[in-house]
Nucleic acid binder design. Sequence first.
RNA 1: GGCGCUAUCGUCUAGAGGCCUAGGACACUGCCCUCUCAAGGCGGGGACACGGGUUCGAAUCCCGUUAGCGCUACCA
Length: 441
Amino acid sequence: MSAPVRVRFAPSPTGYLHVGGARTALFNWLYARHHGGKFILRIEDTDRARHNEAAVQVIYDGLRWLGLDWDEGPQAGGEFGPYFQSEREAIYQRYFDQLNAAGHLYDDGGAWRFRFQREVVEVDDLICGKVAFDFGNIEIMPDMTIRRPDGSWIFHFVNVVDDIEMQMTHVIRGEDHLSNTPKHIQLYQALGAAPPRFGHIPLILNKDGSKMSKRDQGASITSYIEAGYAPEAVLNYFCLLGWSPKDDSEILPREEIIARFDLANVNRKGAQFDLAKCDWFNSQYIQQMPMSRYLELVQPWLEKAGIYADAAALEPVLALEKMKVTHLREVPDRISFFFTEDYAFDPAAVEKSLRNPGTLERLAQLSEAYASVTPFDAPTIEAKLKELATTLAVKPAEFIHPARVAVSGRSVGPSLYHMLEVLGRDRVLARLQRTRERFAA
RNA sequence: GGCGCUAUCGUCUAGAGGCCUAGGACACUGCCCUCUCAAGGCGGGGACACGGGUUCGAAUCCCGUUAGCGCUACCA
């Protein structure tokens, strides 16, 4: 029986969480959850200049938003801490001394270099397979600096030391580290430690195949939060970048992804990022999620827009447009006219539907018919409108379009009859009345 | 330059020698449904980078070329 799985996500606090990083965290998390192991968060802030609370907070926020909970790390504790590299100085010094005592290091103008064994090192990667690297030529594989003249540490060294100290069993990281791996393996060997298993996952590229940079759309996890994505949708989309369940399913619940995830079916090819497909996942998730979850996700957006209403008032309104929403941030604008009598009239809609001769008369006729219709529900309202149209020998559209603009101020919106039902008779009649007065001149 | 990884529709992918006249999804597009906008339904166009092998047979195996990406830091 092999040791329980221990994997980690080890970001540098740069002030934002990149999709590539988030996807690396996700695959590590999935691997841990699938195997019942531990997922550890370690902050690689050796460069103290870049360390600051806000930058670290962005990482916490991004991971939590995606639902990637860590078993050990900052704010979670654990027996292998501290989990900030900036607080592990004594440990690094100890390993440095060990390496130095064994003759693996030499001083090179104040910087300390690790002397490689001049041999072939094979990496047996869980995703890429066996890859051999030849350290035979010192000219093309120079020894590696692990400590700067000012005493600060180089990534390769502290990364390996921490992985040893924290007893990582697997290192799942971006493919950009594949070429670094043989160097790390040499470090493990010099330190007398057994290397973990490695798995290098393909990189996430831009829409045009170039490397995704900070500025690119969709590059930062914060941008998903701010654009109104549902985390479950984004998580699902990210999983499918480089991993496939191997059948045609795409919308996969988190639990099923955990159950089916395996490094063996992670691709080796870099995946280009397609925000349009991410949008599709989002709209699918919104469409299918229960109203309670939808309400929860939409609430912050409503508050931001100054729309306050209790769930009982909100739910029927939200239900009208739920299947049309792509980004949660659209919601307030779609439903704002339900919560104020001072809704704005779209000039183009007014021009198109309220200015025609006889239109206001139609609204009056509709008001009269609706004053007594019972019950005031969609089917009955619809039947009544059609009956009225038939009686007056005009097309239903002669009522429908003006009525839509009259009660909502716009030409685009929910199904008219359902919208009227949710608005309720009193508000409908009042809105029709006011619209007639307003546009009477 | 050296070393490494990769190479199926525009994109994400299925495909582990015959099931492939290459399947699904997004995007695009035609039609249907329809009170608007969506959603949904039914269609359409669209790919095995190229060249050599191996084999009765290759998208699938091998070699080469080309292209993309990564590493080659006293960045992480």
